[in-house]
Design a protein around this nucleic acid. Structure first.
Lengths: 337, 337
DNA sequence: AATTTTCAACGAAACGTTTCGATCCGTTTT
DNA sequence: AAAACGGATCGAAACGTTTCGTTGAAAATT
């Protein structure tokens, strides 16, 4: 590997001049620059980023931490981040956190001098986030929030999503609407839950404890929650809204087993609009999040913090309802007063 | 950030002794090591990998290049790689290649001194692979091969997959079996095609040009190929084998539109066993690849090359048939002689 | 013509490590 | 008791950059 020393020698200048020339400083004569650039090309020179990083104390590297279970369609989010980062000349290091003890990303940040970090993983404990924040590395939280610290965040409007879902069901005549909750350690889950309760209140509906199911965002948990619910006596809701799509798929399985027909006996609305939904019969109505934009907004915000020293900020992106065939007007005669 | 100099000063030793102590060299007295470690802990010292990398000319970094369209279930593959890498103390830098001009990974490799690289992206042109190989960085090709160069590869047994699919259909009585080809620039697609032809021959079946459809691995291409095929006159196959699942899903859509019932009128076998398959009605029979193992084998091979200087090697992993409800015995009366 | 100014190019220090020899001191050998 | 040895510690160079302060020569000013 050719070093800048070799380039300088070949061009007949000093190392420092070579460095200035290569970095486009105006201090150097155009003629000299040409010479240096020519020599660099001939030697196939590429700067050693380790050395440069050591000197300049930056790395052109952005870290991105996500949960190991990365899920179907986060591709777009990743692409949104990567596109923005790479246009700005930054590389992306991705960490899949498995939630066991200490985090990969934390270690990396301490050892390598990374220029910025995006945390999305719900598995990174708050204490670790505070630690990382203490390293003074520009940081954006994606799909999470952390009280009491001045950290940039990018989230989607989970509450509005819940509102849209309930509104849609209400418009179809549903008055008894059940909910499948996600795990409380997830920011998304908490917001969607709160949004659901708000929406009920807004439409003058009473929350009903027996039709609040608890899951953990996995398909299995949705299946089991719904199964147990169906086995309990008492009047059933005419519709369910689920905090995410995976649980809804599980619930759908349980409904099928019991012979409950969707959408005639039961309407269903999910959240996330994962890809699978349209292959299912019936295709599932869900709340769609703008994944690519989520990624690119996040990266932009981070890059502004890194390059232009912009302070912390908060972005909330909109969601929309995608209506498919898992929702229908409530069956006449079953509608509550 | 505390440096090793600070640690040395606090421990009352020289920098070199501190370095030896921290790196577990036997040259240093146990008592001294204790002192140094204590000082390091008190100062919350972490080594600067840029400086270390500069000196030792390594980085503890592995690059992984994949296609931007990363697809549903490559999660497991990624996890396989990441697990192995992180156990060995390496970090993973992931590049999503978008196929436009020069590659992200190529640039990164030249600038940062990465210890090893895994290339999976089908979008990296062969010339670029040769370039990268020329950098003398340990390298493994995943799901690709490159003739004429001594490069390690990890692939799955695509031909066997095709054979299993045909064997299954043959066993159900199918004698006229169609094929949906993938794009010829994909190694997987070429192998599966070759495997399909081999299998036909093995069972004494004649390939039939009119039932060989061409797609490009996308769902849309499968839809269009099948649609066109159905509009052509002539006897139809009783079964189709598709080079990947996405195209099969598209084809299924076309069949539905024309009222062809699966599996009674037409049996279908896909390849990859993507997650969506089990949500579809009918659930699709497919060839499953061991994704996690694919990832972990690849990482292990690379790490052996890096750490133990092991030479190039080639691994081929097995596949298996997952039978679901898209395949059925050929309808009596329709079976060809 | 002598002095100052300008500006391209240079030399050397610095970033934080690792590591090769050198040094020092206590122990063994003669 | 002197010499040789061994082992722990140290000093300094090196990795490949960037960048500050300096140099030297040409250009501008007097």
């Amino acid at each position: 590997m050719a070093t800048i020393k070799d380039v300088a020698k070949r061009a007949g200048v000093s190392m420092s001049t070579a460095s200035y020339a290569l970095n486009g400083s105006e201090k150097v004569l155009e003629k000299t620059r040409k010479k240096v650039l020519k020599a660099a090309k001939e030697l196939n020179y590429t700067p050693n980023y380790l050395a440069r990083g050591l000197k300049k104390n930056r790395n052109d590297l952005i870290a991105f931490a996500v949960d190991e279970v990365f899920g179907p369609f986060y591709d777009y989010l990743l692409k949104g981040i990567q596109d923005s980062a790479s246009i700005a000349g930054y590389n992306l290091v991705i960490f899949l956190e498995n939630g066991g003890g200490k985090t990969h990303v934390g270690n990396f940040l301490k050892e390598h001098r990374v220029d910025g970090v995006i945390l999305m993983s719900a598995r990174i404990p708050e204490s670790e986030i505070r630690d990382i924040h203490g390293l003074n590395i520009p940081m954006v939280l994606l799909n999470r929030k952390l009280e009491g610290e001045d950290i940039s965040t990018v989230v989607i409007d989970n509450r509005k999503g819940a509102m849209l879902a309930v509104q849609h069901l209400f418009g179809l005549g549903h008055r008894k609407i059940g909910f499948i909750r996600g795990p409380d350690d997830s920011y998304d889950a908490r917001e969607r839950h709160a949004g659901f309760l708000d929406a009920l209140q807004h439409f003058g509906l009473a929350p009903d404890a027996t039709s609040m199911l608890q899951g953990d965002f996995t398909e299995l948990s949705g299946y089991e929650a719904m199964k147990k619910s169906l086995e309990r006596p008492g009047e059933k809701p005419t519709a369910f809204f689920s905090s995410n799509d995976e649980m809804l798929l599980g619930a759908l399985g349980a409904l099928r087993e019991k012979g409950v027909r969707v959408p005639c006996d039961m309407s269903l609305v999910g959240f996330d609009d994962i890809k699978e939904l349209k292959y299912i019969h019936p295709a599932i109505t869900s709340i769609r999040r703008p994944m690519y934009e989520l990624g690119s907004h996040t990266a932009h915000m981070l890059l502004n913090m890194i390059k232009r020293n912009v302070g912390t900020g908060h972005v909330q992106l909109d969601v929309r309802l995608v209506v498919r065939s898992s929702t229908a007007p409530v069956a006449s005669g079953r509608e509550s007063a």
